[in-house]
């Protein structure tokens, strides 16, 4: 039986351990896909997904997310990126994740500013504002690439576009983001 999000969150708040199995049933494949896109190793993916459940258990309460799916995917993204960094600290892996991070570096050229929690929240607000100003297609392509870490081939397949089209959209949107970050003082 698949529960609604609020029912699963209530199980966490009641400290009912069945919350984990319900979460796994409903969002296991989704979180696995997020981890897979970053790590491409089944063992590492499973480890990150299991750690996601542990982090979710430890954070609810006090957290009470409205959209459990994206609350979990944020945890999985962070854990997967940290795992990726640990495994690839010595060398460039050359995989999709490296390429995605290199593309994001383009938006930062010479970045400034301390990395504080306050600035991180401000940055999220700026990103949402930037996304809101994009066309629907540009926004979808940007999010599939930089949130879900999908390859340009996968994005092209998803939206019935050519890969060239996808790359052009990504290049344009990165340039727009770079301009906004410069205007907001995150980049010189």
């Amino acid at each position: 039986m698949i529960l609604e999000d609020n029912e699963i969150v209530n199980l966490y708040w009641e400290r009912n351990e069945s919350a984990i199995s319900h979460t796994d049933t409903k969002y296991g494949a989704f979180c696995h896909m997020i981890a897979w896109n970053i790590l491409h190793q089944n063992e590492d993916c499973e480890e990150c997904v299991n750690d996601t459940w542990l982090k979710a258990w430890n954070s609810m309460p006090p957290e009470k997310p409205d959209a459990l799916k994206y609350f979990l995917s944020a945890i999985t993204r962070n854990l997967s990126l940290d795992c990726y960094r640990r495994k690839h600290s010595q060398k460039r892996g050359g995989g999709q994740t490296d390429v995605v991070l290199e593309e994001l570096e383009e938006c930062l050229s010479r970045s400034v500013g301390p990395e504080s929690e306050v600035l991180a929240k401000e940055l999220t607000k700026i990103i949402n504002g930037f996304l809101g100003d994009l066309s629907v297609r540009e926004r979808k392509v940007f999010i599939r690439r930089y949130y879900f870490v999908e390859s340009t081939a996968e994005i092209a397949k998803r939206y019935a576009l050519t890969e060239t089209n996808v790359r052009m959209i990504l290049s344009r949107t990165r340039k727009k983001l770079a301009v906004i970050l410069r205007e907001e003082g995150y980049v010189l």
């Binding site: 993204r77 990395e115 940055l123 990103i127 949402n128 949130y147 019935a160």
Partner: peptide
């Protein structure tokens, strides 16, 4: 700020944008 920080800042992307991206239909 590094690319990792920008990547992690995207965790706060509005849910409606994330849901919209999962819709494969376009015009």
């Amino acid at each position: 700020m590094r690319a990792d920080d920008l990547f992690k800042a995207m965790n706060g992307i509005d849910e409606k944008f994330l849901e919209e991206s999962e819709n494969t239909e376009n015009g």
